[in-house]
């Protein structure tokens, strides 16, 4: 299989389940051999902000697992700046980029799934 899936996450991890849904879907698609991109947009930038290890299930742990398995994760630089989310505060390996990166991902993807609430 050589298909590409891009997932857009627009929601933070604490009010709804969308961050978990997005990362779990990304992980499963990656396990199945697809190329997977995850773009954290708007409040989605709060997901990479869950950085420290915790003794309970959390989206940060899922994100690190996704990165380890080769999911490409990026976040919107403007959205991060607006929320004072700096690179030091977020999980390593998730660059802050412009929205054009998401547009490029969409153009090269077979499927795009949006978790926007």
């Amino acid at each position: 299989m050589d298909k590409t899936l891009t997932i857009l996450l627009n929601r933070g991890p604490f009010v709804s389940e969308y961050a978990d849904l997005a990362v779990k879907m990304a992980l499963k698609a990656r396990e199945k051999g697809h190329n997977v991109n995850l773009y954290c947009y708007v409040d989605g930038v709060w997901a990479p902000h869950v950085k420290a290890e915790k003794p309970y299930e959390n989206v940060g742990r899922l994100l690190r697992e996704a990165l380890d398995k080769g999911v490409n994760v990026k976040m919107c630089a403007r959205c991060a700046d607006a929320r004072d989310v700096s690179s030091q505060d977020t999980i390593e390996g998730i660059p802050q980029v412009g929205l054009f990166d998401f547009i490029d991902w969409m153009k090269e993807s077979d499927k795009v799934v949006t978790f926007t609430g």
């Binding site: 299989m1 899936l5 992980l27 698609a29 199945k32 697809h34 795009v112 799934v113």
Partner: peptide, 18 residues
Amino acid sequence: AFDQLVDLVMDQWDRVMV
């Protein structure tokens, strides 16, 4: 669920709405 959903999204469905 996610196993089946990924197969549907990537191989079965032409368009996806959420």
